[in-house]
Amino acid sequence: MTDTSITPQARSFENDAQFGDYFALLKPRVMTLVVFTAFVGLLAAPVPVHPFVGFCAILFIAIGGGASGALNMWYDADIDAVMKRTQRRPIPAGKVTGDEALAIGVALSVFAVVFLGLATNWVAAGLLAFTIFFYAVVYTMWLKRWTPQNIVIGGAAGAFPPMIGWAAATGGVSIESILMFCLTFMWTPPHFWALALFMRKDYDNAGVPMLTVTHGRRATRVHILVYTLLLAALAIATGFTQVGGPVYLTIAIVLNALFVRGAIKIWRRDEDMAEADNFAVERKFFKLSLLYLFAHFGAILIEAGIDKLVVWL
């Protein structure tokens, strides 16, 4: 008979950690977005990059993103243990110790920054170092537990990868890479606030001051609509820049029409309506937001030229 009185923390490290447990520290799902947007930034740049150099750049950017995830899990272990969505992560599940996660995060951070600098240039390495610092320290240790604007400001951490990819190719920053940064930055709040609408109890129990907790769901719905409208204007305007074009513009118009429509539906709902169908509209909007960013950056990749991609493959 299992002793259910023993918490996961008390049973910690009863089982040996597997490779998958250490890999999970790197937040592979988040890393997928980091890798893809960095890859698009690299190929969209007007400077050709040798495939091997480009591969190394993306690899080290991915490792840096994973290092950020490990540091985030180390510091947020107490929150992760409370939230249902995160209870199975390696540290609260008792698979990996906090000290191990910290050591892995620090080691991979140094490795990724140094080798990105050696493989490409130190502007890209500096941006990667700042991204890791911003996510692990500014967002995780400060903003997340202090202000309902945590996602708004902290979203910058996830918006830097295309700038890093661009810098790896060009050695600098330009208006095009800033626009790609802004696209991800403005997408982050409605994306996470939609999640927070149907996961409010998790954040409430963990004491995380998400907008849904501090200002309520009604205010969150208004914020989602406002940010979605601003995002749509930015996304469509990007179609008229160097990284845009007819393919991008077509995809942006269609997707942003759907996104704005979804935000309006969320704005019009009250809590009785949402709870009656288990937040079906909010969940649909959240799923659409995942497609939204990949489709926009995929369109930028197409506009950059399939010929560049063929060279890589």
Rank of each mutant, 00 (worst) to 15 (best):
Val281Tyr: 01
Val226Ala: 14
Leu43Tyr: 05
Phe185Trp: 15
Gly41Arg: 12
His191Gln: 01
Ala81His: 13
Arg261Phe: 10
Phe181Glu: 04
Leu127Lys: 05
Ala70Ile: 08
Gln87Cys: 06
Pro48Thr: 12
Ala169Arg: 08
Ile266Cys: 09
Gly171Ala: 11
Lys27Gln: 14
Trp193Thr: 03
Thr250Ser: 07
Phe111Arg: 05
Arg261Gly: 08
Phe297His: 14
Thr188Lys: 10
Met31Arg: 13
Ala119Tyr: 04
Leu128His: 05
Ala157Thr: 07
Gly239Ala: 08
Ala67Phe: 14
Arg268Ser: 14
Thr140Tyr: 06
Pro246Leu: 01
Gly98Asn: 02
Ile164Ser: 07
His223Cys: 01
Thr140Phe: 04
Gln149Thr: 03
Gly171Asp: 10
Gly207Thr: 05
Asn15His: 14
Met199Ile: 00
Lys27Glu: 14
Ala77Thr: 12
Leu59Trp: 03
Val152Tyr: 03
Lys284Pro: 00
Pro28Phe: 14
Ile178Trp: 15
Tyr227Met: 13
Ala81Thr: 11
Val123Met: 14
Lys144Ala: 03
Val34Trp: 12
Ala44Pro: 13
Leu229Gly: 11
Asp76Met: 09
Gly98Met: 02
Val311His: 06
Trp166Ala: 08
Phe39Met: 13
Gln9Cys: 02
Leu229Thr: 00
Glu176Ala: 12
Leu127Phe: 09
Val247Ile: 14
Ala17Ile: 05
Tyr248Trp: 00
Ala168Val: 07
Ser289Phe: 03
Ala101Phe: 01
Phe55Ile: 12
Trp166Lys: 05
Phe52His: 03
Arg11Trp: 04
Leu229Arg: 02
Ala38Asn: 11
Leu229Pro: 04
Val106Ile: 14
Phe297Pro: 05
Tyr22Gln: 10
Trp142Thr: 00
Ile302Trp: 08
Asn278Val: 07
Ile266Asp: 06
Ile266Arg: 01
Ser177Ala: 06
Ala252Ile: 01
Ile153Phe: 09
Leu288Tyr: 12
Val114Ile: 14
Ala219Thr: 13
Met31Ser: 15
Leu249His: 00
Trp166Ile: 03
Arg221Lys: 15
Gln9Arg: 14
Gly105Asp: 02
Ala45Gln: 10
Arg11His: 08
His50Ser: 13
Ala235Trp: 04
Pro162Asn: 08
Val49Cys: 07
Asp270Asn: 15
Lys95Cys: 09
Tyr292Cys: 04
Thr188Ile: 15
Arg85Leu: 03
Asp76Gly: 10
Phe55Leu: 15
Leu116Asn: 10
Leu290Arg: 05
Thr86Ile: 08
